[in-house]
């Protein structure tokens, strides 16, 4: 089943009367349960694309279909309702609500999506548990490290059980250890069937995906399915190239 589809999607910005095309006709579809990474040089349009997919930027022309429903024609408030119900978004800089506790940050989107307070609490407890953040539930975001904040942001994005998880450079601001934690989680939710579209520059993130779509100059230049291979057992020693 197709969760997301775009048809000839275009975004042109106006820069002092000069049209600047950021996305120039993107057609692609994401199936349920797929993990798609979008890569490309900065300025290739990948962030613009994922923002349009989440209704955070408006398309100039073309169509976006989410769950069989056309959404690019929705009003801003209708988008807001749709996002609450069907989309989780993770940004590079966490964007947590600073004057709310970690627990409230995660419960809020569940409540907005229509869950009862009890369901929202259970969902929050489950997600924070999965992310090893249970003991940080009543801390303020500012008391957390960057890596912990990003894990909270991921929990928040998953709180409403979204049809689609969108992420824009989720590891862009993390060190390698925290990157590993966030990746582990993305891999886990993906294994549980979560559909994921992530814009990334980080090849470690892309290496987790089923598919890597490459953009250049606002267009798709490569769409590679990354089939899993069975690997012979190896060790870190294999990283060293021994000659002779």
């Amino acid at each position: 089943m197709t969760v997301l589809r775009t048809l000839n999607l275009v975004r042109i910005y106006q820069n002092g009367g000069v049209p600047v095309p950021a996305v120039r006709g993107v057609d692609f579809a994401v199936e349920a349960g797929e993990f798609v990474a979008i890569m490309g040089p900065s300025g290739s349009g990948k962030s613009t694309l994922v923002h349009m997919l989440g209704g955070l930027d408006v398309r100039t022309s073309g169509e976006i279909w989410l769950d069989g429903k056309r959404v690019d024609t929705l009003s801003e408030s209708a988008w807001a309702v749709l996002r609450r119900k069907k989309i989780g978004f993770v940004f590079q800089f966490y964007n947590l609500v600073t004057n709310m506790t970690v627990a409230d940050n995660v419960e809020l989107p569940a409540l907005l999506a229509g869950m009862s307070p009890r369901e929202a609490r259970e969902r929050r407890e489950y997600l924070l548990g999965e992310l090893s953040l249970t003991e940080r539930a009543f801390a303020a975001p500012a008391e957390l490290s960057g890596g912990e904040q990003q894990r909270v942001a991921l929990a928040r994005a998953l709180a409403n059980g979204p049809r689609l998880l969108l992420a824009d450079e989720p590891t862009g601001n993390l060190d390698s250890r925290n990157t590993r934690d966030v990746l582990k989680l993305l891999g886990e939710v993906h294994r549980q069937g979560q559909t994921v579209v992530v814009v990334t520059h980080d090849a470690k993130v892309a290496s987790k995906a089923d598919r890597v779509v490459t953009l250049a100059d606002g267009m798709i230049v490569d769409d590679a399915s990354m089939r899993r291979r069975r690997l012979p057992p190896g060790t870190a020693g294999d990283v060293v190239e021994l000659r002779g």
Partner: peptide, 22 residues
Amino acid sequence: INRQRRHYLSLMRDLTELAERT
């Protein structure tokens, strides 16, 4: 470039899995 990128990405996948196994 596309072929080379796919190759590097599959090497990256090998390394990621190797790190997880270590």
